[in-house]
C-alpha cells in the first residue's frame, strides 16, 4: 500500500514536470537567460555591433551609482508612481461609485461606455494623439487659451510642466482601467449587506464610508500594487511623446536605458541601467509586499 502511494506520488511528479516544461523552457530562453546575460554585458564596454568588447569589471556600475541622469530618471518614475496612485485610484473609485449608486439610469450606461474608450487605444497611439492635441500651435489647450484671449501654450516643451502634463495623459489613459476594476469589485460585495445597511437606516454616503470602503480595501491595495509596479516600468507613452525631454524633464529609467543602448550604442552601460532598474523595481515590489503583508497576509495577489 505504502509503495503504491509512493508510486503514485512519483507518477504525479513526473506528469507535473512534463506539463511544466514548455513554460519553463520559454521563460528560461526569453526571461531568465537574458537577465543573466544583461548582468554579464553590464561589465563590458561594448557598442553592441563590433565583435570586440572590453571587459571593464564594475566600471559601468560605478558610473551608474553616481550618474545624476539615472537618479533623476528614477525620481521621475517615483513622481509618476505617487501621482498615478493619488489621482487614478480615487478618480477610478469615484467614477465606479457614481455608476454603482446611479445604477438603473440609462444615461449612465452611455457615460460608462464613453469613459472606457481611452483604454481601447494603445499607449503609442495615445502618445501621438496627445503630442498633436497638445501641440503649441494648434492643439486643444492652445485653442482654448486663444478662445479666452491667451496665447500659445507649450506644455510639453517646457521643462517645468512637461512631467506633469505627461502624468495627466497617463491618468487619462489608465483611470478607466481602475474604474472598471472597482466596478467589478463592487459586485463582489454581497447585496444583502447593502440591504441590511439600508434597513438599519444608513444613508448612501454612510454606506459608502462605513461599509463599502472597508470591504473594498483589499481591492484598493492590489490596485495600488499594480499601479506601483506599472509606473516603475513605464516606457512607450513617454518615449513617443517626449522621449525623455526636454532635457531630462521626463526621463524615465526605461527611456534612458533605451536611448543609451539603441541610439548611443552604449550597450554595456545600457545593460547596467537595465539591471539597476531591475534591482530597484524588485526591491520596491518586495518592500511594498512586506509592508502590506504585515497587516493582512492573504489580501495580496
Amino acid at each position: 500500500m505504502n509503495s503504491l502511494s509512493k508510486l503514485r506520488a512519483q507518477e504525479t511528479a513526473r506528469v507535473a514536470a512534463l506539463f511544466l516544461t514548455p513554460v519553463f523552457l520559454i521563460l528560461a530562453i526569453y526571461v531568465f537567460y537574458p537577465i543573466l546575460e544583461s548582468f554579464r554585458i553590464s561589465m563590458y564596454d561594448w557598442n553592441g555591433i563590433s565583435p570586440n568588447k572590453t571587459f571593464i569589471g564594475g566600471d559601468n556600475w560605478k558610473d551608474l551609482v553616481v550618474d545624476g541622469h539615472f537618479w533623476k530618471a528614477f525620481r521621475n518614475n517615483l513622481t509618476i508612481m505617487v501621482l498615478s496612485i493619488a489621482i487614478q485610484l480615487p478618480l477610478g473609485l469615484s467614477l465606479a461609485t457614481f455608476l454603482e449608486f446611479g445604477a438603473g439610469h440609462k444615461i449612465l450606461k452611455v457615460y460608462k461606455v464613453l469613459w472606457f474608450v481611452p483604454l481601447l487605444m494603445s499607449s503609442v497611439a495615445i502618445g501621438f494623439l496627445f503630442t498633436y492635441a497638445l501641440s503649441t500651435t494648434d492643439g486643444i489647450i492652445t485653442t482654448i487659451s486663444k478662445f479666452f484671449g491667451g496665447g500659445n501654450v507649450d506644455l510639453l516643451g517646457n521643462p517645468k510642466t512637461a512631467l506633469f502634463t505627461v502624468i495627466m495623459v497617463i491618468c487619462w489613459q489608465f483611470t478607466p482601467f481602475y474604474m472598471v476594476y472597482f466596478i467589478a469589485s463592487f459586485t463582489n460585495i454581497p447585496y444583502d449587506i447593502y440591504e441590511a445597511a439600508v434597513i438599519d437606516g444608513a444613508t448612501r454616503s454612510m454606506y459608502f464610508i462605513k461599509i463599502a470602503l472597508p470591504l473594498l480595501k483589499p481591492y484598493i491595495k492590489s490596485a495600488a500594487i499594480m499601479s506601483l509596479v506599472g509606473s516603475l516600468k513605464y516606457f512607450d507613452l513617454i518615449y513617443v511623446m517626449t522621449s525623455g525631454g526636454p532635457g531630462t524633464a521626463t526621463e524615465l529609467m526605461a527611456t534612458y536605458m533605451y536611448k543609451e543602448s539603441f541610439s548611443n550604442f552604449n550597450m554595456g552601460y545600457g545593460s547596467a541601467i537595465a539591471c539597476g532598474m531591475f534591482i530597484l523595481i524588485s526591491l520596491t515590489a518586495l518592500f511594498t509586499l512586506k509592508v502590506l503583508n504585515r497587516r493582512n497576509t492573504d489580501d495580496l495577489i
Binding site: V31, P34, I35, E37, S38, K233, F235, Y258, S271, A274
Partner: peptide, 9 residues
C-alpha cells in the same frame, strides 16, 4: 520583471 532588462540579449 521589466522587459527592458531582456531587451539587449
Amino acid at each position: 520583471i521589466p522587459i527592458h532588462i531582456t531587451l539587449i540579449p
